[in-house]
């Protein structure tokens, strides 16, 4: 199925969790936060949260700014 990860369309297996998503795309898992369909998903439930089709997933961290 297709999702949008940080602005890019990606194909992922059905049932992928947010925790797996970070691993599959070699994204860091500390110092980051995830929003799915414009809602924050707490780290404590990444392992149980499956990514639905057409999900809009944003994985963010600190960058220089301000």
């Amino acid at each position: 199925m297709t999702i949008t990860l940080n602005g890019s369309q990606r194909e992922i297996p059905d049932g992928t969790t947010l925790e797996q998503l970070l691993t599959d795309f070699s994204l860091p898992d500390h110092g980051v936060a995830i929003a799915m369909n414009r809602e924050v998903v707490p780290r404590s439930v990444w392992a149980q949260t499956r990514v639905p089709p057409d999900a809009l997933v944003e994985v963010v961290t600190a960058s220089i700014g301000g």
Partner: peptide, 20 residues
């Protein structure tokens, strides 16, 4: 010290968080 919140990049190496 302020930081912005942006999409993660896949580049490795020292990060702003390491510096801070």
């Amino acid at each position: 010290v302020t930081v912005a919140i942006r999409r993660v990049s896949m580049t490795a190496g020292d990060s702003i968080l390491d510096v801070l």
